[in-house]
Simulated assay, not measured.
Amino acid sequence: MSLSLMADPFVREHDPALIARKNRANAINGSTAFGLLVARIGGCRVSKGPRGMWLADGYRFGFPDAGAFTVGSVAITKHQWPDILAQREWLFRHEEWHSFQYQRLGGLPFIPAYLLACAWSKVLTGDVWSRNVFERGAGLAIGGYTEHAMRLPFRALAAGGRFARRPEGGR
């Protein structure tokens, strides 16, 4: 992993009290319970992970199409968390940031908000992550994503609606 990626502010350590408040809030708002249910339905093996997160591995379904995803304070993957933590610990940090997003949105309202952000990104860029406010907030690079540019018509709108104009008198 490059030094610049490790210097990413999303990889920094958090105050243990902040982490505990986030995990407690996600337990109270029901999102962690729902995450544990998703893990159970998905056939996962669940264990307690670092920083109060639950780690669920061996997820058997193809949706969502991601290396890992988070519901409440439960990080779920089809792979094995011990391997991920040993080789790509930064992916865990990305998923942990999603658990903070669940807390900030009051739990399960995160899911429709996230799906809406996926649709918005798909329209703008052709992928579900490049302009997804939640993926950007959790750190695209540490989530393993490559940012794509906005599609041409949207680039012009983002630049203030200035389309290329012909010079005065030009045809």
Rank of each mutant, 00 (worst) to 15 (best):
E168K: 00
L140E: 05
L85Y: 00
E89K: 06
H79L: 11
A75N: 12
D57Y: 01
G143V: 04
S130A: 01
Y145N: 13
L152P: 14
A86N: 09
G137D: 12
P109R: 02
R88Q: 15
D83L: 07
K122G: 15
A66I: 12
N23Q: 11
H79T: 13
D127E: 03
R136V: 14
Y114L: 06
I111C: 06
H98D: 07
G137Y: 07
T125L: 00
E13Y: 02
V74N: 05
K22C: 15
R51E: 15
G137N: 08
F61Y: 13
A66W: 10
G67A: 13
K48I: 12
D15T: 03
F92V: 09
I84A: 03
G170E: 14
V46L: 03
G161S: 12
A17I: 13
A33G: 14
A86I: 05
S99K: 07
V46E: 02
Y114F: 14
W129S: 15
V38Q: 07
W97P: 00
G137R: 04
A113Y: 02
I41M: 04
R166Y: 12
S121M: 02
R162I: 14
A56R: 03
Y114C: 06
P112L: 01
A27G: 14
F34R: 00
G106P: 06
W54M: 04
A39Q: 01
P64A: 03
P50Q: 08
S121L: 02
R51K: 09
G62I: 07
P109L: 05
R12I: 08
R104F: 09
L115M: 07
A17Y: 02
Q80C: 11
V133W: 06
C118E: 15
G107R: 02
H98S: 06
A27D: 14
R155F: 10
V71C: 13
I84F: 00
I28H: 03
D83N: 11
M150R: 05
W129N: 15
A75D: 08
P167K: 03
Q103F: 08
F92M: 04
Y59I: 07
R166P: 11
G143R: 00
Q80E: 15
P16M: 04
L115W: 10
S47I: 15
R166E: 15
F154H: 00
R165P: 10
A138D: 11
G144H: 05
C44S: 11
R166G: 14
L5M: 10
A66F: 07
P167R: 06
G160F: 05
V74P: 00
A141V: 14
T146V: 15
S121E: 06
P153D: 12
V133F: 03
S47V: 15
A138I: 06
V38M: 13
M150L: 13
W129D: 15
V71F: 10
A164S: 07
S73H: 01
I142P: 08
W54C: 00
A117Y: 03
N23Y: 00
G170F: 10
Y102T: 10
A33W: 13
L108I: 12
L157I: 12
M1Y: 09
G43Q: 09
A33L: 13
A20T: 09
M53N: 05
A119H: 06
A158G: 11
F63Q: 07
L124I: 12
W97V: 08
Y59H: 03
